[in-house]
Simulated assay, not measured.
Amino acid sequence: MKINKLRQLPRLLAFAAVAEKGSFTRAAEVLGVTKSAVSQQISLLEEELGIRVLNRTTRGVSLTALGESLLSQCQLLQDQTNRIFTDVVNAGANPQGRFAVTFPHAFESNIVIPAIEQLCLEFPGLEPELIVSDKALDIVSNNLDVAIYSGELPDSSYRALPIGAMTEIFCATPLYLHRAASPVTPESLGEHRWLATSWQQQKMPIWHVDCNKSDVIQLNPFARANTLACALKMALRHMGVVLLADVVAKPYLKTGELVHIAHRISGPHWPVYTLHAYHGEKPVHLTRFHQLVSRFFMAL
């Protein structure tokens, strides 16, 4: 006799409830179903097992000898089921294990690292794995929990939570500007040493702040770097002009290490999101991570 074991699991749990409560009615109340549904489950169990597990009388129900033997095993099944759901609930409230996040270099020092530090204080069971990359990484194929993404969203099934927006601005050190001995205006930017990243093009789209219109200017790269961090380090060594996201530039502008130049124009303007692949309710630590990232982003 071939038995569909998965189909029997709810029937065994229904049997255990009837045996413990001594009544189909009280078992139905505990299980949150109708009395007839419980009765049907027990009948199907007995039919497929080929044994009678309950004696039914007008005064109630009692266990057969085989039913008594089966009950102890079903109670173990009940305990295991309860333990599984307890673990799931606790995992939601107290998440543990790997939490993999990818994000561009621009968000590393002043946004993601402080957010992760606070997140681990609140959820000490987490084991963060940070993948810093200026190239967008796919969440599923790279086995990631969340990605911080800047730019227009890709056409995908991922869920996006808005963080804010950032604008690229032109910056240089006071010493470079002194050495250059010429004013940095929108018209003269092409004459200055430009420290470009690999994704920035010579024909740079810009926005005229004062007249609220877009344009394109020609820039001449003096040096190129494949990461924003490298371009920034060259700029801090007075090697030229760099186009930085404002979230990256602000701490250096506050200390005076960099100066915002060519105020009348800005580079591209990018929306910023937290991306995740959950279609139902998000894990509590992912929601909290998004909140923290948004807070540190807005504080810059």
Score class of each variant (00 low, 15 high):
Tyr278Leu: 01
Leu12Gln: 01
Pro114Asp: 11
Ala65His: 08
Ala231Phe: 01
Ser214Arg: 12
Val88Ser: 12
Leu153Glu: 03
Val89Asp: 14
Tyr273Val: 05
Leu63Ala: 03
Pro205Lys: 00
Ser133Met: 05
Thr274Asp: 07
Leu126Ala: 05
Ser198His: 10
Glu168His: 09
Trp194Tyr: 15
His290Lys: 14
Ala229Ser: 14
Val53Met: 05
Ser188Asp: 09
Leu243Val: 04
Asp155Met: 06
Glu108Thr: 15
Pro251Arg: 05
His260Ile: 05
Gln201Val: 10
Ser188His: 10
Arg295Ser: 10
Ile169Glu: 14
Glu168Ile: 01
Ile84Leu: 15
Leu177Lys: 05
Leu119Phe: 04
Ser157Cys: 02
Asp155Ser: 11
Thr102Arg: 01
Thr167Gln: 13
Asp87Trp: 09
Phe297Ile: 08
Asp79His: 14
Ile42Gly: 14
Arg83Lys: 11
Asp145Trp: 03
Lys2His: 13
Leu300Cys: 12
Phe85Ile: 14
Gln202Trp: 06
Thr57Gln: 13
Leu258Thr: 09
Glu129Val: 05
Val112Met: 12
Leu244Asp: 04
Glu46Gln: 03
His290Asn: 15
Leu130Thr: 04
Ser39Arg: 13
Ile163Leu: 15
Trp207Leu: 10
Pro268Ile: 03
Ala223Leu: 13
His178Cys: 07
Thr255Ser: 15
Leu275Arg: 06
Ala262Gln: 10
Phe103Cys: 08
Ala14Phe: 02
Lys35Phe: 05
Leu244Asn: 02
Lys282Met: 13
Val132Leu: 02
Gly32Ser: 11
Thr34Asp: 13
His260Leu: 10
Pro114Ile: 11
Ser266Trp: 06
Arg295Phe: 04
Leu253Ala: 05
Leu49Ile: 00
Leu236Phe: 12
Asp145Cys: 03
Asn4Asp: 15
Leu161Phe: 11
Val209Met: 08
Leu13Ser: 04
Ala235Asp: 03
Val132Pro: 06
Thr287Glu: 13
Pro205Arg: 03
Leu77Tyr: 01
Ala235Thr: 06
Thr287Ser: 12
Gln202Cys: 14
Thr57Arg: 12
Leu253Tyr: 11
Pro128Gly: 05
Gly50Phe: 05
Ala147Ile: 05
Leu66Pro: 00
Pro183Trp: 04
Lys135Arg: 15
Thr255His: 06
